[in-house]
Amino acid sequence: MTSSKPKSVQTMKPETAAKKLGVLFSATPAEFQAGVVSRDELNALQAKPPAWLVELRRNGPHPKQVVAAKLGVSISGLLRNGITEPLTTAEIDALKAENPAWLEHERSVQADARKEALRLKQRES
């Protein structure tokens, strides 16, 4: 006889789920913040996002990794230039339109880092 164990449900903290969803945890609804999120629930949120998730992804506030990606810079580049708080999409768009010298510099630093990473990867192959 073989005994089959019931499959355990994989859960995660809501902070982890928010990170995987690409949204700022503190901006999520209280009911999301209060419990745990199962893998199935996370998959459902990704497949068919509720209105609050769509709104957060569209307008923010965005976590630093999303801000950095939208600006084309590294998280370190944001910090070096005093961007330590989450930004909304409108604030990111305003920064892009203003295109301050630090943003141009950090974009070139990021581009150089990507080129170097690609060169090293090609060298390893």
Results as ranks from 00 to 15, higher is better:
116 E>Y: 04
61 P>I: 03
50 P>W: 07
35 G>V: 03
22 G>Q: 02
56 L>D: 00
13 K>W: 07
94 A>K: 10
31 E>S: 14
49 P>Y: 00
22 G>F: 05
66 V>I: 14
87 L>S: 11
62 H>I: 01
63 P>I: 02
49 P>H: 02
92 I>A: 03
31 E>A: 13
62 H>R: 00
8 S>E: 12
64 K>A: 14
58 R>Q: 15
74 S>N: 02
47 A>Y: 06
125 S>G: 12
79 L>E: 15
64 K>G: 09
11 T>Y: 06
30 A>I: 11
30 A>V: 10
8 S>V: 12
56 L>W: 00
44 A>S: 11
91 E>F: 08
67 V>M: 02
43 N>S: 13
62 H>W: 04
35 G>D: 11
47 A>M: 08
69 A>G: 11
3 S>Q: 11
85 E>W: 10
36 V>G: 09
10 Q>L: 13
30 A>Y: 09
101 A>W: 09
7 K>Q: 14
44 A>I: 00
122 Q>G: 08
63 P>V: 04
125 S>K: 14
101 A>H: 09
79 L>K: 14
113 A>K: 15
58 R>G: 07
12 M>E: 08
85 E>S: 13
73 V>Y: 06
19 K>C: 07
79 L>V: 13
88 T>I: 01
18 A>L: 05
116 E>T: 07
12 M>S: 05
95 L>D: 00
34 A>I: 07
39 R>W: 11
44 A>G: 01
4 S>G: 07
14 P>V: 01
1 M>I: 09
37 V>D: 01
103 L>N: 01
83 I>R: 07
52 W>G: 05
67 V>K: 01
81 N>W: 07
86 P>L: 07
47 A>I: 00
80 R>V: 01
1 M>L: 11
96 K>M: 08
117 A>N: 05
113 A>Q: 13
4 S>C: 08
54 V>A: 10
21 L>Q: 01
42 L>P: 09
42 L>K: 08
68 A>Q: 07
69 A>F: 08
116 E>P: 00
119 R>K: 10
53 L>A: 04
28 T>F: 04
19 K>P: 02
38 S>N: 05
52 W>M: 04
40 D>W: 05
117 A>F: 01
56 L>T: 02
25 F>L: 06
18 A>P: 08
31 E>I: 08
25 F>N: 02
